[in-house]
Nucleic acid binder design. Structure first.
Lengths: 152, 152
DNA sequence: CGACTATCCTTGCGGTCGCAACCTTCTTCT
DNA sequence: AGAAGAAGGTTGCGACCGCAAGGATAGTCG
């Protein structure tokens, strides 16, 4: 086999990356708490707000959110119970359920978005140069593309 | 206030980053499954293997793993029941419990490590240049340091 | 048309984790 | 010394999620 361990440079990148992710997700979760939203909830609202007709099929939504079918069902249960999202049947394919953003959901997103953006800046981009941000985009586009190609 | 939304460059970096994290964690979790280990379990074993006398205080371990006290207690329950870690009392401060790596735990780590390293390379570093890896280390060191400074 | 398969969503179950409450032990302050 | 407070760890409870199974609908092929 090739090398059995990470190089010093790889190790440094990996450790700092993992720890950053751990701390950052926890911090951003608590930043969203005042709005009564989970980070996962917020992702749903964003995706729906960008979708055609403000709605998506459950399975497509599960795919982009990297969530299991049951996981999405439960996450939607919460959002539906608070009135931010509603389930809409599809007459042309009755297997399908749409998750649709309600006006209340749209308002909630508009309410939380500025704070969330500030949170991203504070937790992630703060202290990084323009070039570094640009390079981050390049790197994680490569990573994401590579991951999509891998069979899991 | 400053800008209310992310610049195009920030947006690209943020989206690719978040999606990469989502997909990658799921993929690496399943890579570890054949060894009967969670990614979280693996992190515990690594930390203990690097610690003085192969053991750490529970609260220190919870801190570095960004885990709540109860979360760590439960995670250790699993590792203790499989014999990879043992709880050791501290005579000099009887509030404290040590989590100690057993020889079986050490063996399990040695068994899983090569595959895990290969997994990291495949899911993360594949397709990145030396310079990009170096820069990733810089960027996430900045991020981690910045996060540690923030009050949460 | 009719059976077979694939797709989509939901439900039961188990595993993991955070929060709050609690107990124990150490430290501090008078 | 004695009381108040801090620190470390565990337990009850609820929330979230993945897996496997199930039920309904759509597509396919003889």
């Amino acid at each position: 086999m090739a090398t059995t361990w990470l190089s010093a440079s790889e190790m440094r990148a990996w450790r700092n990356f993992i720890e950053s992710v751990n701390i950052m997700t926890a911090a951003m979760e608590s930043d969203l708490q005042p709005f009564g939203l989970t980070f996962g909830d917020y992702e749903v609202l964003v995706r729906l707000s960008e979708a055609e007709d403000l709605r998506m099929r459950m399975c497509d939504l599960a795919n982009v959110l990297q969530l299991s079918p049951s996981g999405l069902t439960r996450r939607l249960d919460g959002l539906v119970s608070t009135g931010l999202v509603e389930r809409v049947a599809n007459p042309s394919d009755r297997r399908v359920m749409f998750a649709a953003l309600t006006s209340k959901g749209h308002a909630k997103l508009a309410e939380a978005a500025p704070d969330h953006v500030a949170s991203v800046r504070k937790r992630f981009f703060k202290g990084l140069t323009r070039d570094q941000i640009q390079e981050l985009g390049n790197v994680f586009e490569t990573v994401r593309t590579n991951l999509s190609a891998c069979p899991r």
